[in-house]
Amino acid sequence: MKLTLHIWRQKNSSEKGHFETYQLDNVIEDMSFLEMLDVLNEKLVLEGKEPIAFDHDCREGICGACSLTINGIPHGPEKATTTCQLHMRKFKDGDEIWIEPFRAKAFPVIKDLIVDRSAFDRIIQAGGFISVNTGQAPEANSILVPKQNAEKAMDAAQCIGCGACVAACPNGSAMLFVSAKVAHFAYLPQGQPERKLRVLKMVEQMQKEGFGNCSNMYECEAACPKEISVRNIALMFRDYLKASCSEEKLELVENE
């Protein structure tokens, strides 16, 4: 396969980026998208040029490290698939491919295709946890979880925090990510004690990070490699409204 690649190059966060065009002739259709970039990087290194910086880790579609907006779609054209699990057989010989970083104000470009997604970590730190005493594992059946709730919690917990929702959203909103984390705990008994405080704090942190507002365009849901549903966002709105009228909100306001 022969491909024409237009790739975003940017030295660092302060300099302006630009597209560079590369021709790649020896692409095998069984390669993953990242392996194709590996081949291109080897070629660039041999030519004495700077290789393209991109994020990757597990290459199994479960870590959330890989990113890339491929032809205007985060993680590329294949539904429910991360970039590392996207294979070149989904492209045709002679295709032109535009590769850009995930774009949002809250995700500044560090270099080339790598963006800083630590805003997500700070949102998790704000409330994406439950407080339990460590020690021996509790007896498995001491807290019962209804099956349908366990399933919904697991669906939400599928979120790998890759940031494709933010990248896809025309507003750069992180609602899908935050709502997945909120819903994950909201469906489980272990999440109940901190439920109201969690949603208030995570939404507040999300806003501080400079993510945009949700306009219900559902582009995030379509781009999500783990098919997280926007129903989680509806649940987060319900929880936020309840929490806004609660004693927890009063405590938060008084503590400020």
Binding site: H6, F19, T69, N71, G72, I73, P77, W98, E100, R103, A168, M217, Y218, E219, E221, A222, A223
Partner: peptide, 8 residues
């Protein structure tokens, strides 16, 4: 984005 394709 230089190229943008909308899904939904």
């Amino acid at each position: 984005y230089a190229v943008k394709n909308y899904l939904k």
